[in-house]
Amino acid sequence: MTEVELSARRITAMVKRYLYLLRGSLPRLVDLAYWPTVQMLMWGLLTQFLITKSSFIAQAAGLLISGVLLWDVMFRGNIGIALSFLEEMWSRNLAQLFASPLRAWEWGVSLFAVAMVRTLIGMVPAALLAIPLYHFSIFDMGWALIAFFFNLLVFGSAIGIAMSGMVLRWGLGAESLCWAGIFLIAPLSGVYYPISVLPGWLQPIALALPSSHVFEGMRAVLIDGVMRWDHLWMSVALNAVYLFVGFGLFLLIFRDARSRGTLLQMGE
């Protein structure tokens, strides 16, 4: 086998490892779809109420539902990476993995692939349910939806991998970062409101996040019916930076863990 084939085989092996875990637990599978569905139902009902009170909402009825579903993409991207990483910590399997020929970047690619699968399992049922319940299909956004999906998934993953690095550095005591860290981003991302609503000094910070450009772009599609390419390309460029920084940080911490011997000690 060539080196490329061997890499592909190792990535596939790790994807299998996480899918085995999902397949073996019905509660885990249900949990993936449970929260997005509950959120969608709640925001859908709120939208129906607001439609009767606000002409703005009536013109763009899918704003809140799209916001909640796309936010969930980012959240799932983040948690998909972090949970898979924590799974290795909980099962004290890190040393086994890194005594094998698995490279850190191959593991990163497999974590991203699994995060995408987990996100689709969570998002698709909720999005399909919104069609009969609220007569709104997020899929009407077409290609724009795919662009938004991948940008948010990549950004969530970049944060997830950086947070995983923090857990590798400080141990399972820092586990809550994996769950809560992403919520620091939420108010700045303009999920349910335009960035212009934020205080002036906060807006440049918000616009330095790929997610804020995605949600601005989403509103442009839903309200004005136009694709804002400037927002899309900015989110792609920012994502490249965040992914580089997030993964670079993880690799630095990983090397530090090899130096301090913590790979052998990590676990419950």
Binding site: R9, R10, T12, A13, M14, K16, R17, Y20, L21, G24, S25, E87, E88, S91, R92, N93, Q96, L97, S100, P101, L102, G267
Partner: peptide
């Protein structure tokens, strides 16, 4: 350890492919 929630076959398959 090896992951406890995976079966023995699944664990060995993952490592065989790694």
């Amino acid at each position: 350890d090896l992951p406890k929630r995976l079966t023995v076959r699944e664990n060995l398959t993952v490592y065989a492919e790694l």
